[in-house]
Write a protein that binds this DNA or RNA. Structure first.
Lengths: 177, 177
DNA sequence: ACCTGAACACCGTTCAAGT
DNA sequence: ACCTGAACACCGTTCAAGT
């Protein structure tokens, strides 16, 4: 007689994502996730292979949402305006999901999660091709992404405490790049 | 009768740093550090307050070394050449200490470690002032540092697997910024 | 003053036993 | 087919007892 399922992978991942963002990576324990979905710890292993597997699934979920947010933001048809809108959406998303963002773009994190996050760069590559020409597409895109990631990472880490207007610095960099 | 000290804070930090770089953050256990310095685990707490305190001390050690490497590299007198040399030294250091670098510039890491790492930006600020003028110093410096950090972080994370010459992309970005 | 064994609370994970 | 209590190995940390 099969026992009825009390939860699902989607629910487990959602709970994991919420806990991750609320309390940080280290505080994301299997016990807390189990409590959140109303099940005992061992049952989680019917849904995910391990804690790091859960973390991977959470980051994939975040990456999918980021891709959607980016594609929605950049659809006016004007490459310049779209690029600015894309960058703004990107930064906004990182601010709304700081912990997950940090995990996604930090070296030495969960392996395998990079695959899906690459999909979110498709729109960016298209826009940059239109602006910089096909010859420098890859290098220009890398420059922009590197700058944006670095800026947001520093911003989230609170590395900008020499004062000054941070929004203004963002615009300054965006113009130059 | 006082028992002779079998180790010192400096030795503990050095062992912690080596293990961190060799095996990653998670694998840095108090037991392994204790084994490395030839002492039992509880004795470590005579040298450091906690594991996260040890991590903080390790990162401060790394930050000091980075500052020294930067200042040594940028001393030709020519601001443009010095800036390039500084960036190169910075990237080289990150490549030589990837785990520690990632930890230093990742959001939500060890609190308190940022203080010393700010010192390493003094030279950069001076060079940028000479090049960009005092009006835009802070914003220009932020743009450069953000780009460099972002580039190196993505490089270390292996995010550049669409191919292409990475050194060339570095030069491209450096020129533009 | 420092070192140590023993103990504690907590964690991820496994597994046999239940339904 | 999924759920669970019990158990295991491991971790950071504390502390009383040694020298």
């Amino acid at each position: 007689m099969p026992a009825r399922a009390q939860t699902s992978t989607a629910v487990v991942v959602a709970a994991g994502r919420r806990l991750l963002e609320e309390r940080g990576t280290d505080a994301l324990t299997m016990r807390d996730v189990a409590d959140a979905v109303g099940v005992r710890t061992p049952s989680l292993y019917k849904r995910v292979r391990s804690r790091s597997d859960l973390l991977r699934l959470v980051l994939e979920d975040v990456a999918d949402e980021l891709t959607a947010a980016i594609d929605t933001a950049a659809n006016s048809g004007d490459p310049t305006a779209d690029l600015r809108a894309l960058m703004a959406a990107y930064r906004r998303f990182a601010h709304a999901n700081p912990v997950a963002y940090a995990l996604m773009y930090a070296p030495q994190t969960v392996s395998g999660a990079t695959t899906r996050s690459e999909r979110s760069s498709a729109t960016l590559l298209r826009l940059v091709t239109e602006l910089a020409g096909p010859r420098h597409t890859l290098q220009a895109a890398r420059t922009i992404v590197a700058w944006a990631n670095g800026f947001i990472a520093m911003e989230l880490a609170g590395a900008f405490r020499l004062g000054g207007d941070i929004d203004q610095a963002w615009e300054f960099g965006l113009d130059r790049v």
